Amino acid sequence: MEINAGDIVWGFWPYDADGGKNRPLLVLSIDESTKRVELVYGSSQHVCEVRPSESDVKSEFLVTQPGETAIAGLTKPTRFDLKKRMLASSDGYTVIGHARTNAMLCRIGKAAKAADLY
């Protein structure tokens, strides 16, 4: 399956030179000429809502509502920290869902602005 911006993928996130962990990642953008993807770190740990789907950390995009977790292919509420990004080859990542509903895209935009991405 082709990877697109807004997809949620499952794949490896390196922590340091010695290792890392497979986890859900948000595809923020794709460089079509090189097929490199900009990925955002996802975690189900320390998901803190101040209101439904709104994090106390402004640069985080939350997927917490049951309908959204299903669309995103997630089994637990998950936070994506737009300050934690990396570029990688698109090889080795599997699409599990997406975050392209209007409400989700709006929240991604707010988190991107808080992370000073634009």
Rank of each mutant, 00 (worst) to 15 (best):
M1V: 07
M1E: 02
M1Q: 08
I3A: 02
N4E: 05
N4P: 00
A5Q: 00
G6F: 08
D7M: 12
I8Q: 06
V9S: 09
W10C: 03
W10E: 11
G11P: 05
F12C: 05
W13I: 10
P14T: 06
Y15S: 15
Y15F: 15
D16A: 09
D16I: 06
D16G: 13
A17I: 10
A17H: 09
D18N: 14
D18A: 14
G19R: 13
G20D: 08
N22H: 12
R23I: 08
R23W: 12
R23K: 13
P24S: 04
L25A: 06
L26M: 06
L26D: 05
V27Y: 01
V27S: 00
V27R: 01
L28C: 01
I30K: 01
I30L: 02
D31L: 02
D31G: 00
S33K: 03
K35C: 04
R36Y: 04
V37K: 00
V37H: 00
L39F: 05
V40M: 02
V40H: 00
Y41P: 03
Y41I: 08
G42M: 11
S43L: 03
S43N: 07
S44A: 15
S44R: 14
Q45K: 15
Q45S: 15
Q45T: 15
Q45D: 15
H46L: 08
V47M: 04
C48W: 01
E49N: 08
E49H: 07
E49D: 10
E49P: 06
V50P: 05
P52Y: 06
S53P: 01
S53A: 13
S53Y: 03
S53G: 07
E54T: 10
D56L: 08
V57G: 02
K58E: 07
K58M: 05
K58W: 02
E60Y: 15
F61N: 08
L62F: 12
V63F: 15
V63N: 10
V63D: 11
Q65K: 11
Q65C: 12
Q65E: 15
P66V: 13
G67C: 10
T69L: 14
T69A: 06
A70W: 09
I71R: 13
G73M: 09
L74G: 09
L74R: 10
T75S: 13
T75M: 13
K76N: 10
P77H: 14
P77I: 09
T78C: 11
T78S: 12
T78H: 10
F80L: 02
L82N: 00
K83C: 01
K83S: 00
R85Q: 09
S89C: 09
S90T: 00
S90E: 02
D91Q: 13
D91P: 03
G92A: 13
Y93L: 11
T94E: 13
I96T: 14
G97C: 10
G97A: 15
H98T: 10
H98A: 14
H98S: 14
H98K: 14
A99F: 04
A99Q: 12
A99V: 10
R100P: 03
T101K: 15
T101V: 14
N102P: 06
A103Y: 14
A103I: 15
L105P: 02
L105S: 05
C106H: 09
R107P: 02
I108V: 11
I108C: 06
I108G: 06
G109W: 05
A111M: 03
A112D: 01
A112C: 09
D116I: 01
L117C: 01
Y118F: 13
